[in-house]
Structure formats: structure tokens, C-alpha cells
């Protein structure tokens, strides 16, 4: 499969006399294959938007390479821009123009046939409100307009930064269906979102960024599998035996991830029969030994170490980088 989007070792550093040096991107890598819907995830301030803005030529990188549709950018951006539709951050439009005027002017600037304006307005559900001024629009309607502007070019690569932001539940579902339709039609979609349930439903693959570095990438199923492999929930007939069971398993080298009142979570268990045997040798008998299914949110929170901890107020830049992510402790949210 060919890569529509490639980023290798991307670096961007902001220097300020007062605030010092901040590495927004510290050697970030990303690869998106053609025809995929690719989720781009990361906590606030992790470098998502900086990556997208750099990719689209709005920010100058300090290092690394980027390619869109096989062409090196930003050098070849003028040539590939016609095949890339994008919305970055919150939708911003001139408030006194109507949606139709806004799209019409963009179409005119980009040499796009005018009939596309009506098509995309229909597609995003703004047909009947197209002649109203943008300043009268709700956030969700502006979001729809932003998506319409990105679709105007009928791009090969569609980059959407938080497209569901402000949408009502029906709108989110429509957006999901739209993504699926676009991908089915051969469009590659890069979707940055914090609605991880949606990402898990829509996306074929994901890249997770934290502190300017990639902490996970691959097909959604693989990423989930990597971070759920060997996690099992264990219950005993007698709850009072759980501490003894935990001790026995720990002595035998099995990682006890979490101790709950009525069950244990074990990690790194590749052969469940081992657990059965260890406990049976101790005269402890299982009532349940089941693999735990993880969701993308759990994986995200684990990899970025951004799960809320009671009594602590996590600051924006407090998340895990690439080095720490692999060994980050589980902080709840394992779908139990």
C-alpha cells in the first residue's frame, strides 16, 4: 500500500526569552496509507495541531521531512495543495459573508468548478441555511461549513482537526457516515479528535502523539491488541483468598496490574493455563478467568499517562513521552 502522508523526524522548537525553550515536536514520525481513515490522537498540547499546521505549510519546521502524495512538502505544497482538503483547529470564517459566498470565494480562488459549492453544502447539511451569514451560525454549523470547505476540492487527502467539535449527536453520526463514505470512495482521511469512541469506530489506523513524539501507531486493532495482550480478569470462589492469590502469582512472575476488592487484573499473561496451575497448586480455585477487552480511550490514557488521578490536577504538559509511554503504569480505565 502506498503512503499518502509521511512524516519522519519532524521537529519544531519554540524559543522565548521569558518562557524558555519548548519542543513542540521532538522527532515525530507518522505514516498514513492510501484509502485509510487514520486517527491522529494526543492530549492537549501534545503537538497534534502543530504537526498539521507544519504539514500544511503554516508553520516552518526546524527539522525532519514530510511528504504528501509522494511529494516533499513544504517545497511541493503549491503543487499538491489542490489535492489536500484541510480544516485546522476551530473553524474560522469571515462573519459577514454567507456560507455560499465563503465557499464560492474559496472555489474561485482554487479554480474549483462552482457546482461543487452546492454539492458540498448538500453533503454537510447546510443547503437550506447557505444564504445566511456565518456569524449567525452555531459552532456545529460552522464546523459543517469548515468540512464543506475542506471537501470543496474533492481532495485525495482530507485532514480534519476536531471535525466533530460542536456537533450534536446526530451531526456526529452523520460525520461518521460521511467519513466512511469518503474512505469508501478512495479518499484518505486524517482525523484528529478527542472523541476516542468515534475514532475507534471510524478509523482503520491511528497514530498517538505525546509530548511531540509518536508513542503508538498502526491499525486500530493492532494497537488495541498490543496494549491488551495478556490482560485478564481473575475472580476466585472466595474473595478473601485474593491477597493470597496475588502473592502466589507475583512470586511466580505473573504481573498483577491492579488489585480490586472482588477481582485482580493480571498483565502479560500469554498462557492462561499457567495462572490456573499456579493457583491450583496453592489450593485456590477460580470462578472466572477472562481476557479484558480494552478500548482506544484506555490505551490512549495509558500511553500518554493522562488518566485522571483523584486529588491531582494534571497540567497540560504533564503527559508521557515516547520513552516513558512503554513503561507507563496503568492508571485505571481498563474497561472493567
Amino acid at each position: 500500500m502506498s503512503a499518502v502522508l509521511e512524516i519522519e523526524g519532524l521537529q519544531k522548537t519554540y524559543r522565548s526569552r521569558r518562557r524558555g525553550t519548548r519542543h513542540a515536536l521532538a522527532g515525530f514520525d507518522m505514516r498514513v496509507e492510501a484509502g485509510q481513515v487514520h486517527g491522529f490522537l494526543g492530549p492537549n498540547g501534545s503537538g497534534k495541531t502543530t504537526t498539521l499546521r507544519t504539514l500544511l505549510g503554516l508553520i516552518k519546521p526546524d527539522g525532519g521531512r514530510m511528504a504528501i502524495l509522494g511529494r516533499e512538502v513544504p517545497r511541493a505544497l503549491p503543487e499538491v495543495a489542490g489535492q489536500v482538503g484541510a480544516i485546522v483547529e476551530s473553524p474560522q470564517f469571515f462573519p459577514h459573508f454567507t456560507a455560499r459566498d465563503t465557499l464560492d470565494l474559496l472555489a474561485s480562488a482554487g479554480d474549483v468548478p462552482r457546482h461543487r459549492v452546492a454539492e458540498v453544502l448538500e453533503l454537510v447539511g447546510l443547503r437550506d441555511r447557505a444564504d445566511e451569514r456565518v456569524k449567525t451560525y452555531s459552532l456545529g454549523m460552522k464546523q459543517r461549513l469548515a468540512v464543506a470547505s475542506a471537501l470543496l476540492k474533492n481532495p485525495k487527502l482530507l485532514i480534519l482537526d476536531e471535525p466533530a467539535n460542536g456537533l450534536d449527536p446526530g451531526g456526529i453520526r452523520e460525520m461518521r457516515a460521511l467519513m466512511a463514505d469518503l474512505a469508501a470512495a478512495g479518499m484518505t482521511v486524517v482525523l484528529s479528535s478527542h472523541i476516542l469512541g468515534e475514532v475507534q469506530l471510524i478509523c482503520d489506523s491511528v497514530t498517538i502523539i505525546s509530548l511531540g513524539r509518536r508513542v503508538a501507531t498502526g491499525p486500530v486493532a493492532e494497537v488495541l491488541a498490543q496494549h491488551s495482550s495478556g490482560t485478564v480478569r481473575l475472580r476466585l470462589e472466595a474473595v478473601t483468598d485474593l491477597p493470597a492469590a496475588a502473592d502466589a502469582l507475583t512470586r511466580a512472575g505473573v504481573q498483577v496490574a491492579t488489585r480490586h476488592d472482588d477481582h485482580l487484573l493480571l498483565r502479560g499473561v500469554d498462557k492462561p493455563a499457567t495462572v490456573t496451575r499456579i493457583l491450583a497448586d496453592q489450593g485456590l480455585y477460580l470462578s472466572e478467568l477472562a481476557p479484558v477487552a480494552v478500548d482506544l480511550e484506555s490505551v490512549f490514557l495509558e500511553l500518554t499517562a493522562t488518566a485522571p488521578v483523584p486529588g491531582q490536577h494534571r497540567q497540560v504538559d504533564e503527559s508521557a513521552g515516547a520513552e516513558t509511554a512503554a513503561t507507563a503504569p496503568t492508571q485505571g480505565g481498563w474497561g472493567v
Partner: peptide
């Protein structure tokens, strides 16, 4: 000024990155 302030310039530069 209004184009910069409302994000119109950014939108335009996404279409015409020169």
C-alpha cells in the same frame, strides 16, 4: 487585517500556499 483576524488568510493559504 480582518482576514488575518478572522482566520480567512489561513484558510486562503491552505488553498494557495504561496
Amino acid at each position: 487585517g480582518a482576514e488575518w483576524n478572522t482566520g480567512g488568510m489561513m484558510n486562503l493559504l491552505l488553498w494557495r500556499p504561496k
